[in-house]
């Protein structure tokens, strides 16, 4: 039944010093539909590809607002993500209540990291089967963090997790140096372009399956998190299409106008 004797639980090291249960949990993240995050000096953007179980069912939410200054995008077990997002909402609210301060991003990210780590060291628990991208703004500016089931959290310039996310990461790596000079809208477009890279031949981005979230600072003023879903994404997708066709005409991958 098992691949070997060392993958029954998260409290057993393999002879190589690996913890297979944690590695398998990372696989669950790859089963989830893709989400992309990117950040520059003024904004942090999350975009996600929503899936529906069947034609007539609703789409699974991919981006969850935690507070007005922060949101997460999820890939993997959505119910695990809900546990984590509820915890994050509580912590964020707690910080506003006791200090009157929006919780700093690195704080809340290391808190969920610590929680996830506990699940990998104690018998009877299992690692979370979800990966998160945490985007938000605090006193130190916009941030993007990646959270993994192992409890590893890393601050990223850009990131993509979920099914076929490698294509998006390749796009992000290739365009990484452009993000800092980007406007808010251009950054969103880069996110959508990265997301589009992951689609298989027969799929495309539509108002039904696309989610976009933005948070940032403009001229020193914090801009609350805004989520675009459904018809709100129509305008964004239209711009994407224009840029792509303009790009195709110029026979170039680059779509900066």
């Amino acid at each position: 039944m098992f691949r070997n004797n060392y993958d029954n639980d998260a409290v057993t090291f393999s002879p190589q010093g690996r913890i297979f249960q944690v590695e398998y949990a990372q696989e669950a993240v790859k089963q989830g539909s893709v989400v992309v995050g990117l950040v520059n000096k003024t904004h942090a953007v999350l975009v996600g590809l929503k899936r529906n179980a069947e034609e007539l069912s609703s789409y699974q939410k991919k981006i969850i607002e935690i507070d007005s200054h922060m949101a997460i995008a999820i890939a993997g077990l959505a119910s695990d993500a809900r546990v984590l997002s509820n915890f994050m909402k509580q912590q964020s609210l707690g910080s506003k209540m006791t200090y009157g301060r929006p919780i700093p991003l690195d704080r809340i990210v290391s808190q969920i990291g610590d929680r996830a780590q506990t699940n990998t060291q104690h018998y009877g628990k299992r690692p979370y089967g979800v990966g998160l991208l945490v985007a938000g703004v605090d006193e130190a500016g916009p941030h993007l963090f990646e959270f993994q089931p192992s409890g590893l959290t890393q601050e990223m310039a850009a990131c993509a997790i979920g099914a076929r996310s490698q294509m998006a990461r390749t796009y992000l790596e290739r365009n990484l140096d452009k993000f800092d000079g980007c406007s808010r809208d251009e950054l969103i477009q880069h996110g959508l372009s990265a997301l589009k890279e992951t689609l298989s031949q027969d799929k495309e981005l539509t108002v039904d399956n696309t989610s976009v979230g933005v948070v940032g600072v403009t001229n020193g003023k914090k801009e609350s998190f805004k989520l675009y879903e459904g018809q709100d994404t129509a305008a964004l997708l239209e711009v994407l299409e224009q840029r792509e066709s303009a790009g195709a005409e110029a026979e170039s991958m680059e779509v900066d106008s």
């Binding site: 006791t98 700093p104 130190a140 500016g141």
Partner: peptide, 19 residues
């Protein structure tokens, strides 16, 4: 323990102490 830039200011401190 956090990187620079997120230190509690006097207003945050006052909110906390009052609580």
């Amino acid at each position: 323990y956090s990187p620079r830039g997120n230190m509690l200011n006097a207003k945050n401190l006052h909110t906390y102490l009052a609580k």
